[in-house]
């Protein structure tokens, strides 16, 4: 795979935010591939690891803002899992292929675009550093 970024998007927040970004013509890197999930809490460590195994250059998990998760604890659990996944990657010395969680609300397309751009920047920087 050619530097794809896989973004798991919660259908209550990030997915509509991404839709809105499109509607407003806000651009983000074309390398982003969105997988729709019912809640960020559905995304497990294995999904993030497999994404990297299949060649993704980064994984985003996008969930609702703190305290606004439709399923109460889904976003908190997702954050914990992202942290755990990050630990697993550091354990095996993989850096430069970040797994990152962002929180946003469905009416925050700018935040979605910012997350996409930020992760692209991180990847680029770590690639240049090597």
């Amino acid at each position: 795979m050619n530097g794809r970024i896989i973004a798991f998007c919660c259908e209550h927040s990030a997915y509509p935010a991404a839709d809105l970004a499109g509607k407003l013509g806000l651009h983000y890197p074309e390398t982003l591939r969105i997988i729709r999930v019912p809640c960020a809490g559905r995304v497990d460590v294995i999904h993030m690891l497999r994404a990297l195994e299949k060649g993704a250059s980064a994984v985003l998990v996008l969930g609702c803002e703190d305290g606004a998760c439709h399923h109460i604890t889904g976003n908190i659990r997702a954050r914990e899992r992202v942290k755990h996944c990050d630990m697993l990657l550091r354990e095996i010395g993989i850096d430069g292929r970040p797994v990152v969680m962002f929180n946003l609300s469905p009416n925050a397309p700018h935040k979605f675009v910012k997350a996409a751009n930020e992760i692209t920047k991180i990847i680029k920087e770590s690639r240049e550093a090597r």
Partner: peptide, 10 residues
């Protein structure tokens, strides 16, 4: 069930 999938993940 509200179909969030948290159980499936854990």
């Amino acid at each position: 069930c509200d179909a969030c999938g948290i159980c499936a993940a854990v």
